[in-house]
């Protein structure tokens, strides 16, 4: 079955409007379901309640209980049955309520979802999207603020992406649903209510590409998800000191699209990679390794990283210290510049 192409449909999706990330995601699922009757949405509390973040608000009302499933409370069940539904020709979009609750589904993701295509020599496609609100900064209790994306980027056979703004939320989720590969879709939950203008007639970037969000010459910041805003804020602040920081949003975490980062580093000579997740064996390790391989002679300083610490996520009164913020990013930029 050929994947339908992403096009604008309906009046809501052709006019320019101001939307939040949450709204962009909602519109994306709505558009995908309107376009393709095989697209369905499933998860805990996503139907009548509209999800704990209201990202699926109104979908069950408009598309019915057969296409928008309030599932029993089991993540292994959600992912495992989504795989079966996909084998049967459906395109399930699963919601995991919070990052820290994906682990009961880890087995199905790693053992079946990622390997089905390979095992079947390409005969069986599993176009499942798993949406995961991720990251901290919302003052929540344990397991509600984690950044587990690197665990999934480590697994061959999965696409791992993260949107950082409403426009990407709208396009990337539709592209993820259209993808014949399984996609782990990480949503920066603390940015759900950030706003931007969406002009649906502007064609989107491809799902697998990174994007320069702000051009600069002094140093490069490579980041994704919730830290994109932090890095853009840092770049604004650095302007006062006469520094022009280039900010690259990685968008696709697996596969990584590092050409724009390498291009940038060849011009700036300095790279700081930023992520909320612990540093050890993470996306930032991967970016740092590959950039120093690619750009060794262009680098004026070692690639530096700003991450969450290599500890469990702390109680929320300590999260301000745990999470990379503008000051920690600029501190790393300073260390790079004075190396």
């Amino acid at each position: 079955m050929a994947a339908p192409t992403v096009e604008s449909t309906g009046s809501e999706t052709t006019r320019t409007q101001t939307i939040t990330i949450a709204k962009g995601l909602n519109m994306a699922m709505r558009a995908a379901m309107e376009r393709d009757p095989r697209v369905m949405v499933m998860g805990e509390d996503i139907g009548r309640l509209g999800g704990v973040f209201r990202v699926t608000d109104g979908l069950q009302k408009d598309f019915g209980e057969h296409r928008v499933l309030d599932t029993p409370l089991a993540e292994s069940g959600i992912v495992g049955t989504a795989i079966g539904l996909a084998m049967r020709g459906y395109r399930p979009v699963c919601e995991i309520q919070f990052d820290g609750f994906i682990f009961p589904g880890f087995d199905q993701i790693v053992s079946q979802l990622s390997k089905m295509h390979y095992r079947s020599q390409g005969r069986v496609k599993v176009p499942v999207v798993i949406r995961v609100p991720f990251g901290g900064g919302i003052g929540a209790v344990e397991h509600h603020s984690e950044s587990p994306e690197s665990l999934f980027a480590h697994v061959a056979g999965l696409k791992v992406v993260s949107c950082s703004n409403p426009v990407d939320a709208y396009w990337m989720l539709q592209q993820a649903i259209d993808s014949d590969d399984p996609v782990l879709f990480f949503e920066p939950k603390r940015r759900y209510w950030e706003k931007a203008e969406l002009d649906p007639t502007t064609p989107p970037l491809s799902l697998g590409s990174s994007a320069v969000m702000r051009p600069g010459t002094t140093a490069t910041l490579a980041t994704y998800g919730p830290m994109v805003k932090t890095c853009l804020d840092a770049a604004n602040a650095a302007e006062e000191d006469g520094h022009e920081l280039e900010v690259v949003d990685l968008r696709s975490l697996s596969p990584l699209d590092l050409e724009p980062v390498a291009d940038s580093v060849r011009r700036t000579g300095r790279l700081v990679v930023v992520s909320e997740s612990p540093a050890e064996s993470s996306i930032t390790s991967e970016v740092a390794t590959r950039i120093q391989q690619e750009c060794f002679y262009s680098l004026e300083a070692p690639v530096l990283r700003v991450n969450g610490f290599d500890t469990p996520y702390p109680p929320s009164r300590l999260e301000e210290g745990y999470l990379p913020d503008l000051d920690r990013v600029l501190d790393a930029v300073d260390r790079s510049l004075t190396y």
Binding site: E44, D45, G47, R48, L49, V52, D70, T71, P72, L73
Partner: peptide, 10 residues
């Protein structure tokens, strides 16, 4: 109830 889901969902 499990948040918004009645026991019949389980």
């Amino acid at each position: 109830w499990a948040i918004s889901e009645p026991t019949e969902r389980q």
